[in-house]
Design a binder for these strands. Structure first.
Lengths: 107, 107
DNA sequence: AATAGTATTACGTCTGTCGTAGTATGTAAG
DNA sequence: CTTACATACTACGACAGACGTAATACTATT
């Protein structure tokens, strides 16, 4: 299991990645993170939803309500162009970060 | 340049790595991080010194005073066995983290 | 009727980083 | 000689992100 301390800098990037292809909502994103990471990273609900509001405040995503007939109403999120640009920046930063961290890792 | 947000989970690991071979002190560690990262990561002084006290509190390092004849007195830090074990854990976690993050990075 | 799964929000706490500033000494430039 | 720069560390308060806990609300299964 991965601790939140080491991945916290990438929560926003992970969320944006999952919104690249289509809008989605909290619960779904949460499941996708769990599945794509093979259960190695399970994001806390409060962390996820607070990330959504931060990303929206920064203009990287926009929100809208789904039209579910049954169940609790979902809040969907769609990535913006700014979000896409920010995501790309973070990907480039990841390459650098990886190089730097690996200089301090002894196998 | 790497933002502190993305590397913050590795500050302790980086510091412990630099103490593996020999005791060292704040200013030196700071320079080594800057050099080994090729100026891509410059740790803030306050971040570094607060990391020292956290690591010492957790038993991962111990401190002692150097016997400099001139200049301001240095506080040296030596890694403990617990620190070595913790460092190794973090290295293993890094491998996992890298795998997970890369699933969310589009090149 | 009870339980589990889906789906979100509110509130307060904690930790790590950062900005700013101050203390203290040695050395090189002008 | 005094100014600036590099060395070396500490104090204090602010802030952001993650977390624990709990509440709300609906559906499906047993």
């Amino acid at each position: 299991m991965i601790s939140s301390d080491v991945i916290r800098g990438y929560n926003d990037t992970i969320i944006l990645y999952l919104l690249l292809n289509a809008p989605s909502y909290g619960y779904e994103i949460s499941k996708q993170i769990r599945e794509l990471s093979k259960e190695r990273y399970i994001i806390k609900e409060t962390t996820l939803y607070s990330a959504f509001s931060r990303l929206e405040k920064n203009g990287y995503i926009t929100s809208f309500y789904g039209d579910e007939t049954g169940g609790k109403r979902r809040t969907y999120y769609r990535i913006t162009q700014e979000g896409i640009d920010y995501y790309k920046e973070k990907c480039e930063e990841w390459v650098l970060t990886k190089e730097v961290v690996e200089r301090f890792i002894r196998d």
